[in-house]
């Protein structure tokens, strides 16, 4: 039965839409309508609308780009402002087939890839050296600071493709259809990347000092 379902899924590719992720709650739709009201102002060239939209998206884009680019604040802000400049200058390019947030994150993702290639930084974990052993020692394994450090190091070891799906799913609550729209690949590819990203993340965490809390 499961295999039949898998076959059916392969032939009926789900489209990313506002109804994806199990359907939007009414309050969420109302919130999206509010963001769209601001975006309509951006389309008409109203700077105040743009600034309100900038304030809404700055914290989320900053977090996303920090983890994607792994560079200092100045580089992240440059990429973020490049992204929002596209929103300001090319608002007419948004055709409404996806969520506004998906469109904006898609621009940010492509800008991040360009920045990485411009800086000649590795975008694939195949180019990365093996993780250096931080050797926290069993006596210091527990503890919030160590765990945060291990997680950050493990995330940094992932390829940019894998980091993107982890980041967008876990920290921006996007469905696989929305992530597919952001990174420009089929939803099946997103699931495959997620499968290998999780496997790699857990292997890295074990290498870096043991299991997660609650994990046997």
């Amino acid at each position: 039965m499961l295999m039949n379902w898998i076959q059916r899924k392969k032939t009926t590719r789900p489209a990313a839409s506002p109804e994806d992720a199990g359907g939007s709650a009414p309050s969420e739709r109302a919130g999206e309508a509010a963001e769209m009201a601001l975006f309509e102002g951006v389309r008409q060239g109203r700077q105040k609308s743009f600034e309100a939209l900038y304030r809404l998206y700055h914290p989320r884009l900053q977090r996303f780009l920090l983890h994607m680019i792994r560079q200092g604040d100045a580089v992240v802000e440059e990429v973020l402002n490049d992204t929002m400049m596209v929103v300001w200058r090319r608002a007419d390019a948004f055709d409404g087939r996806s969520r506004l947030s998906t469109w904006i994150f898609g621009i940010a993702y492509r800008k991040a890839l360009k920045a990485l290639s411009r800086m000649d930084l590795p975008v694939d974990d195949a180019d990365l050296p093996e993780s250096p052993d931080p050797a926290p020692g069993p006596e210091s394994r527990a503890g919030f600071v160590q765990l945060r450090g291990r997680l950050q190091q493990a995330m940094n070891e992932l390829s940019v493709d894998h980091r993107a799906v982890i980041e967008l799913c876990y920290f921006h609550d996007m469905s696989h259809g929305e992530i597919a729209d952001v990174v420009g690949c089929p939803p099946e590819t997103v699931k495959t990347r997620m499968f290998y990203a999780r496997r790699r993340l857990r292997a890295l965490l074990e290498d870096l000092g043991g299991h997660l809390p609650g994990e046997m």
């Binding site: 900038y54 700055h58 900053q62 919030f144 997680l151 997660l212 609650g214």
Partner: peptide
Amino acid sequence: AERSLQAALADCAEERAADT
């Protein structure tokens, strides 16, 4: 294991003050 991972990631998510 997935739930443990998500809980750890949520606990460790760095709250960074964004100078918007």
